[in-house]
Every structure is written in C-alpha cells, then in structure tokens.
C-alpha cells in the first residue's frame, strides 16, 4: 500500500540511465514510507532489463508483450492506469524525459492524480513525501506538496541522483498485459538518427561552448578566435544552435550531445539542467557569465563573473602571448 512504483525506461535495446536513478531515489522514499520499491517494465523480450532493475528494487512487474516493442504514450497510459487501480501504490515515478513528459500529464488528467513535474528531490513532512522542483531555469527552488489521496504521480529530472551498486534482489513477476490490442490513433512509425556533422564533439579534448549571451551571429568570430588559440572545437547551448550560430550537431545537453572534454569553457551560458546534464562530466569547467547567480557556476571549477565581450577578446590575446 505504501509502495513506490517506478516506470522503467528503455529505448532501442538500451535501459536508460533515468531508470536506475529513479529506483535509487524511490528506495529512499519507500524506506521512509515503510513500503517497497516496485519497478514496472513494459517491453518485448527485455529479460536482461528485468534482471538489471531487480538489483535496485524489491519487486519487478514485467509485461513482456510485442505491443510494447516501441514506446507509445497511449499504450503506456492505458497500462499504468490499470496497474494503479490494481496495486494502489502511494507514488508513481516516471522520467521527466521525452518519454515521460509525453505521457504523465495525460495519465494524471485521466486518473485525477495529484501530479508534480520535474522533481529532483523529496523532503518529508509528517511522513509524507514533499517534492522539490525548480522554477525560473533553476534560480528558484519550490516545495510543492501533493494534496488529497494517493496514488501520487511525479516526473523525475534526469541526472539528479548518483546511482550506486545494486543492493537488492527483487523478485521478477511476469504479469499479463491489461492492454489486449493495439491502439491506432497514435502509431509509432520510425526512429530517425541524428545527422553526423563534420566534428564529433563527444571526442573533443577542449570545447569552447557558447550560449545566448553571445547575442548575435556576428559575434561568433570572437569566440572562434578563442577556440582557435586553444585548439578547441566549438559547441553551444540549445539557444545557440536554435539561433543558427552553430549546426545542431554541436548542441550539448539532454537533447544534444553528452561531452567529456578535459576543458569546457562555457561562455554566456546560464546552465539550465538540460545543458548541465550534457557537460557535467568535463574534467575542468570554466564559466564566463555576467550573472553571479547563473546556475552554471554551481558546476564550474573556475568562475568569471563579468561581461563576456570584455573578457573573451583579452583572454584570446593573453593566450596568444603565453603560447607564443
């Protein structure tokens, strides 16, 4: 009754990181609630995922059915609605991912669930989980409480928890699918892989990354020159690629690339979590931003709070001198 359910997420034969992240978070919550963590896995022939998630949960409910070969929010919604009725967990966690946000709000409306999106942490009050989320691009935190009766629904932000070694041995229970036939008002057609560009930034040793702070296309030569002195490749935030200053394959973040360079210079980037998730793994991060409260500084090793237009050209000159 006080169980925490977690929807396992996978795509194209891979279990996605968010799954174990959510289970890790769920184990903490379930412990406080005095309940179990239950992983819900929908898929076709994904026994290895069932095995994997059982290491992080008390129980795995596994529906193995060709109907779930590919993700379809409508089918997932039907199944989860039925499972909530049958099992009445206290909380259901779904990834705040492109899969989760495509389904969770509709499920919440259908089942009239107290629903909070983009949660990264839980506090507790009188034994009740209080989700914590952010507003204004990470500048403000908010505690938002569920009202009314469970089940509660939360979508969970990616990369907000560290996943440890497996510590459980949950039982795997195969159950029948409550969905008996295919749904055709929304059909999955195909995946389209991203186009491959001239430079693969996931392999770059040094990256100069630009954001909206660079303001206009005509300011790009300034950062290109810096990149040249540093023998770095250029990449950017989504704001920079949307604006067309850089090709799309140079975008860093959840909807772009995950990079792990030795050095990452973030110039005029605020540090939205979708961006941070893609560059946190850099060895050294230098951030130049005129806003001292920009979330990018939380991840940076070196911070320069100043106008980038004043700092970057001088930095380029100084580097040229030093490197002779």
């Amino acid at each position: 009754m006080s169980d925490v359910f977690v929807l396992a997420e996978h795509r194209q034969g891979e279990l996605r990181d968010i799954t174990l992240e959510m289970l890790t978070l769920a184990n903490g919550v379930a412990e406080k609630l005095g309940g179990n963590t239950v992983a819900v896995l929908l898929g076709s022939g994904v026994d290895s995922f069932a095995e994997k998630v059982s290491g992080y949960s008390d129980k795995v409910l596994y529906i193995d059915d060709p109907l779930f070969e590919d993700y379809n929010s409508e089918k997932y919604q039907r199944v989860l609605a039925a499972l909530l009725d049958d099992y009445k967990p206290t909380l259901l966690m779904v990834g705040h991912t492109t899969q989760g946000v495509d389904m969770a709000p509709a499920l919440a409306v259908e089942k009239q669930l107290p629903f909070i999106s983009d949660v990264f942490e839980f506090e507790f009050e009188d034994g009740k989980p209080i989700p914590v989320r952010q507003f204004y691009g990470g500048k403000v935190n908010a505690n938002v409480a569920f009202k009314g009766d469970p089940p509660y629904l939360a979508t969970i932000r990616e990369a907000s928890v560290e996943v440890g070694e497996p510590s459980k041995q949950g039982s795997v229970e195969k159950i029948d699918s409550p969905l008996k036939e295919d749904i055709d008002y929304r059909r999955f057609i195909e995946y389209i892989e991203a186009e491959v560009g001239d430079v693969d930034i996931t392999q770059s040793e040094i990256l100069v990354a630009v954001g909206r702070g660079v303001r206009e296309d005509k300011n790009m030569p300034m950062v290109e020159e810096l990149a040249q002195v540093l023998k770095a490749d250029l990449c950017g935030s989504r704001a920079a690629t949307d604006a067309g200053w850089l090709p799309h394959d140079r975008q860093v973040g959840t909807s772009g690339k995950t990079v792990k360079p030795k050095l990452y210079l973030a110039i005029g980037i605020s540090g939205a979590f979708q961006h941070l998730a893609g560059m946190k793994g850099a060895k050294t991060i230098v951030a130049i931003n005129k806003d001292p409260e920009a979330p990018i500084f939380a991840e940076a090793d070196y911070g320069i709070v100043d106008d980038l237009f004043k700092v970057v050209p001088v930095l380029t000159e100084k580097l040229k001198e030093l490197k002779g």
């Binding site: 059909r187 999955f188 057609i189 995946y191 892989e193 991203a194």
Partner: peptide, 8 residues
C-alpha cells in the same frame, strides 16, 4: 534525447 527523433 541525444539528437534522435521519433516519427509518430
């Protein structure tokens, strides 16, 4: 995620 698209 990661530049992949899905057509529905």
């Amino acid at each position: 995620e990661g530049g992949l698209s899905e057509v529905v």
